[in-house]
Design a binder for these strands. Structure first.
Lengths: 221, 221
DNA sequence: CACTAACCGGATAGCAAATATCCGCTTGAC
DNA sequence: GTCAAGCGGATATTTGCTATCCGGTTAGTG
């Protein structure tokens, strides 16, 4: 009885189904977040539930299989940002880029903000990304383009804060969060003569009420 | 068969138990959020489950009974803020006050940010508070102390964003959110010569990892 | 083509957690 | 003293997800 995915070549159809499952999971996670069911994923993939469970022991294994590639995207953004010769635009690039990824993928937000996976797995990725963020912030501080009391960890929490807005306004004004990103940036930049124009109009009072009144997820935070 | 709480005087012991239940609910909601069970509440109140269900048809009815007084606190803060002769300090007072209330009451955050109650109920409260916020923002804009593209609805979303941080760091650095409130305020104030010192130290990298790695609730969001 | 190990679908068993009821016993109020 | 009102808490019900099982199908090989 080989556990799911013992390291042995799968039959062609099985391998194909595994791929369909991963693609389906990827889409569903992006649209609806990580709490879709493995059964949902199977149905969406056009495959029996049994097949899903034969290929993956449980949902976490599916998440794990997608975790790497998603986090690599984030790492990529951080790396580009850290390599930007202009430290301010690097910072900008990182925050905008990371948030934009989450913007297109609800599951990614949950992967980044929740303990969905084993500590070890998460720690490994963090150890790859954290140093880049440190560079980003320290460099900007050294050059005096941002407030001196800014900390690397602040970027994490800002991202967390803004993703809460994103989540609430998804499907109504999905990029409203960019208003607050802009305000935040104006709050940390040294050379702010005049305000950076807000890139997105505010919601009307009615729309705001709509947004706050919609069901969340079930749950998420 | 009178439904729970038909408008008829309760026997003395019954009335007392109702009070104990409400007090228990208030504390549990504050500590653990709205998703505690009616059974939890009964146990905490030192009362049988049956008693709880005799007094309230379900948890929502308990929330509803507490909703009013909680929201009145928020309204109070908004009113004080709107009456502050200094429009900037009014704004400050509102945001700090509202967030501080949430700081001490996890359930309140959920009441404010989630559709836990009927639309009608929420709409009524909103109609009482929204005008005050409008005054606050419009006045500050008119006096030129904040950026002209600030909108009243922005205060709502900032509060939402910061409460996400608060929720994540509760029990580790419960007032970390004040860092980001300060940055936000620096991002909207016109007369910022120098940065407002951040009122709270950042988390260490390790603490940040801790915070992001802890279980959320079940979920919320 | 014949054969079989691998694979498939999806009904359904299992499980967990919350909700809500029921009923025999107790107590406040008149 | 009487009894409607109230009490406790074991337990039935519900809900929604997780995971298995098994009869039927198919890829791959000689």
């Amino acid at each position: 009885m080989p556990g799911p995915d013992a390291a042995r070549a799968l039959r062609k159809d099985a391998a194909a189904n595994r791929e369909r499952l991963l693609r389906a999971a990827s889409e569903l996670f992006a649209q609806r977040g990580l709490d879709v069911t493995l059964n949902d994923i199977a149905r969406y993939a056009g495959v029996g539930v049994g097949t899903a469970y034969r290929r993956f022991a449980n949902k976490e294994e599916v998440i794990d299989a997608l975790f790497e590639e998603r986090m690599t995207q984030v790492e990529q953004v951080a790396r580009e940002a850290a390599e930007d010769p202009d430290s301010w635009s690097g910072l900008l690039h990182f925050l905008e880029g990371a948030l934009d990824l989450q913007h297109g993928d609800r599951g990614l937000t949950q992967m980044m903000n929740n303990p969905v996976l084993g500590d070890a797995r998460v720690a490994e990725v963090r150890d790859r990304i954290a140093p880049l963020v440190t560079v980003l912030v320290e460099r900007a501080k050294a050059e005096g383009v941002v407030r001196p009391d800014l900390d690397q960890t602040d970027l994490i929490f800002v991202q967390l804060a803004l993703s809460a807005v994103m989540d609430r306004t998804r499907g109504l004004a999905p990029d409203l969060y960019r208003r607050y990103l802009t305000v935040f940036l104006d709050g940390i930049r040294t050379d702010r003569g005049t305000f950076t124009p807000l890139p997105v109009p505010p919601l009307t009072a009615y729309e705001t009420h709509e947004a706050m009144t919609r069901a969340s997820r079930r749950r998420p935070g």
